[in-house]
Computed example of a mutant assay.
Amino acid sequence: MAPHLAEITPRTFEAALGIRVRPDQEHAVEPVERSLAEAYVHPAGVAWPRLILDGSRPVGFLMAFFDIDWYGDGSVRRSGLWRLNIAAAEQGRGYGRYAVAAVGAEIRRRGGSDLYVTWHPGADGPEDFYLRLGFRKNGETSGGQVVGVLALGDGTEGASA
């Protein structure tokens, strides 16, 4: 079966909470519980939490953000991938690449042209993953994390990764 996204509902809530990254990755990404709490406190339409399913099997969680005031002063609005948690046993099977492509498609659908992401710097972070998908560092940091951007074109970004 092909992966797909599911809304977090009372039916999918427990499955989302069951997504755990590898122990050595826990310092680099917040747990699903924190993401769902953050989604709850942000205005409607900003946070987009989704369960990643392969058939009916939960394999990951993502949370995107749409049209946020990046600097808090109204000067720059951005959309992107806020969180990506692929279950430890499911890593290396293309679900992360699928998640990035799905968020990119949603940003394009909403009229956006760039997908932003931040990541934990260092050898133990996901930098290589994002760079392989075509993200480029834009020279910024946010909360001590590297900021990367992917120009959204015709929907083929990440296809060669």
Rank of each mutant, 00 (worst) to 15 (best):
E127Q: 15
Y130W: 12
D24Q: 12
R77T: 07
S160D: 13
E106P: 00
K137E: 13
A151E: 14
V147M: 14
L115E: 15
T12D: 03
I68R: 12
G92F: 01
A15P: 00
N85H: 09
Y95P: 00
I52E: 03
F65E: 05
L150H: 03
Q25E: 13
E33R: 15
D128M: 05
H27Y: 02
R93Y: 06
Q145K: 14
A47G: 01
R77C: 03
L84A: 09
G72R: 04
G104N: 13
V59Q: 03
P121I: 06
D114K: 09
Q145M: 15
Y95C: 01
V100A: 03
G125I: 06
V76G: 00
R22Q: 12
H42R: 11
A89I: 03
G134T: 10
G125H: 05
L152H: 12
V149K: 02
V41S: 14
L62M: 15
H120A: 14
L36T: 07
I68Q: 08
G104A: 10
V100F: 10
L81K: 07
G112S: 09
A87K: 01
G139K: 15
W82K: 07
A101H: 12
P126D: 06
L115F: 13
Y40L: 14
R83I: 01
P121A: 10
I68S: 02
R77K: 12
R93I: 00
E14K: 13
G143T: 06
E14L: 11
G60N: 06
G60A: 08
A99W: 10
V59C: 07
A161H: 11
R57L: 10
S160G: 11
Y95N: 04
F13Q: 12
G104M: 09
H4E: 05
F13E: 12
G72W: 04
N85I: 01
Y71T: 03
Y71K: 11
W119H: 14
I19E: 08
P121D: 10
S35E: 06
P58Y: 04
G111Y: 07
G80S: 08
G55T: 02
L115P: 01
V29Q: 07
I8L: 02
A16C: 07
E106A: 15
H4F: 05
A89G: 14
R22M: 09
V146S: 12
L81P: 08
Y71A: 09
A89R: 10
D114T: 11
I86Q: 04
E106T: 01
A105G: 14
M1S: 12
K137T: 05
V21C: 07
V146P: 02
R110D: 11
G60W: 04
V29R: 04
F66K: 04
D67T: 02
G80H: 10
L36V: 10
A151T: 11
S75Y: 13
W70V: 06
W70H: 14
G134P: 11
V147K: 09
L17H: 09
A87I: 00
G153T: 10
G96Q: 03
E33W: 01
W70M: 07
A159F: 06
G55V: 04
H27D: 15
R77L: 06
Y116W: 15
L84E: 04
L150R: 00
Y40P: 00
L53N: 03
A88C: 13
E106W: 12
R57K: 08
V147H: 08
G55R: 05
H42T: 09
L81E: 02
D128F: 07
V149A: 06
A99T: 02
